[in-house]
Design a protein around this nucleic acid. Structure first.
Lengths: 331, 331
DNA sequence: CTTTCGACTGTATACGTATGCATTCGATGC
DNA sequence: GCATCGAATGCATACGTATACAGTCGAAAG
């Protein structure tokens, strides 16, 4: 291992001067900086993040806590978040929240991480409280937990859902089913509440038996659609908690031989790239997930660098994107 | 920040004893261990990975170098690899190889990382040589570079491609087109060579104009299919470098109104979960990507813990999975 | 010519943990 | 009852970098 001391020796200066020169400290003369830089290049030296982290008291590693890495949704979160963090000089470390007492606590608590983005918070999670108690900065992404305050990046589903319901109700749908997300997530709950209240404005309501709940994954949509569409009198429209659920439902319908949208309309939420494919053409509620992911990166970095700034909550608008999985109900 | 010294004070022992007790060193008495553990819990202490890494001389962080995080292929790599690494007590850090001189070098070189998995190596990449020169352990995943030896995890495409070609040629295809991956990747090259040599055994060859190349992404397949299918006399079968390319081709065909497989058959390579969807049903060459990803995790950890072990090369077999995007060519 | 100041660089030390070595203490053997 | 040994623990220090502080040196001001 090549250390700053080796560089110092070669450049004929002291170790601290190397440290300063390489971080472009104005107190070091240009001539010395050049000598040091040349020596560093000659030896192939680069500063040890570990030593640096120990000395500075914090690292430049941000943890992203998710439950389900297979879920394609998170691929579209990770990529832009990672790029933005890198741009800001930070690294992204993945953490799966397998259990409350699991590695999250261990990895997050010892200050291996300077901050955390929570992307799969449930409203009853203990993690936010733990992080707060230990003074680890964190940001809610997409989902929040009311119990503990923190910066957040979320979507306001109202505009999208309102527009969506206006359109499908206008085109004649009355019997509406839903496969919502888990009740213990803020997103699941918020989307459900919004749907119910907007339906109410239209003088409609969801029949209890037409409402299902489950994790935001393919299997939920796949199984849910089977349940709903196997009925004697299935709903003419199925609202899904998100796009991945809708993709499950769509494929379930295809497998059952139920024509979409002729026999049933299906709607998602997220507008993932897959949803726009010619073979899919999913009608859905869209928002800027890329920008959201980058904003989460910016917020956590800002919080890390200025822990006492006032809380920031960025909320992104949503809109309805009508594609080919919705139409008037069959007569 | 709570340190081992705080725990030591509370437990009435010295700091080194805390260090030993918590790592279950047999030289510490059970009674002391208990006192230390209790104190640690009481204070909510967990050992600092940073301090530990500095003292031990290496971290427990493995870097995964990829170029294109949006690509769903990598989602299916990251998830199992991450789980396996976590099981082994290591962490996964994502690194995008934006440029040869970019952050890869910086992050990898200073011993922030104890090892690296290269998932998007090109045959002409300088990174393997650099890693070797600095003594950073690494493993090739999926792709290799001949110039520098290292452990590797790869797929042998031959069985799958052989079976695939036997079947489609048997069903009558003669005019075969291809959208291969980049020539400067071992996987792209190997799959192409295998296809050509097996075709040769059948007395067939690819027409020069029916062969395209491009990055392993959706756009390559989308654009490539458009090029091939816009012809007066398009191929009756299009072989794609991987599934993501095939999905692009499939959607391109759908958008052009070209029926699959009635007018053109399309085949991929990877068998991603998406390929099995009822709405997709892509015929493809399958192998155990999950297991491969875990094996890469195991190999890099083994290499890190025993740098001088003899090189290991794990090769996974492939097989053809016929689904709904292939049939006899139209008469 | 002396003083003062500022620009630059070096010295000493801190960060949190791990480990070789020294030390203590009680038990065992003679 | 003394020597010996081993188990248990403490002491000192190392890891690589960053930073407060002290020091040096030359130039400018008096």
């Amino acid at each position: 291992m090549i250390t700053s001391r080796d560089v110092a020796r070669l450049a004929g200066v002291s170790q601290p001067t190397v440290s300063r020169a390489l971080r472009d400290d104005p107190k070091v003369s240009e001539a010395t900086k050049k000598r040091v830089r040349d020596a560093a290049v000659a030896l192939g030296y680069s500063t040890s993040p570990i030593g640096r982290a120990l000395a500075v008291g914090r690292s430049t590693r941000v943890g992203l806590v998710v439950t389900d890495l297979e879920n394609q949704f998170y691929g579209h979160v990770i990529a832009p978040m990672h790029r933005e963090l890198e741009r800001l000089g930070y690294e992204l470390v993945l953490i799966t929240e397998s259990s409350e007492s699991g590695p999250v606590t261990e990895h997050v608590m010892g200050h291996g991480l300077c901050g955390v983005v929570l992307a799969t918070t449930t409203v009853d999670s203990l993690l936010p409280a733990r992080l707060r108690d230990r003074g680890v900065p964190f940001v809610y992404f997409n989902r929040t937990a009311q119990s503990v305050q923190a910066d957040s990046v979320t979507v306001d589903p109202e505009a999208g859902i309102r527009e969506l319901l206006r359109e499908v109700i206008g085109s004649g749908h009355r019997r509406i089913g839903a496969i919502f997300g888990p009740r213990n997530t803020s997103t699941g709950e918020q989307r459900e509440n919004t749907v119910r209240s907007v339906l109410d404005e239209h003088g409609l309501a969801l029949a209890h038996r037409d409402v299902l709940h489950g994790p935001f994954d393919f299997a939920t949509g796949f199984g849910g659609a089977r349940t709903l569409l196997d009925r004697e009198d299935p709903p003419t429209l199925v609202l899904c908690g998100n796009d991945v659920v809708a993709l499950g439902a769509l494929n379930s319908a295809a497998e059952m031989g139920v024509a979409v949208p002729a026999e049933v309309s299906i709607v998602g939420f997220d507008d993932l790239p897959t949803s726009g494919w010619a073979l899919i053409r999913l009608s859905t509620v869209a928002y800027d997930l890329d920008e959201m992911s980058r904003e989460a990166a910016r917020l956590i970095v800002a919080r890390v660098e200025e822990p006492d700034a006032r809380p920031r909550h960025t909320i992104y608008p949503s809109r309805y994107v009508a594609r080919a999985t919705t139409s008037s109900p069959r007569a």
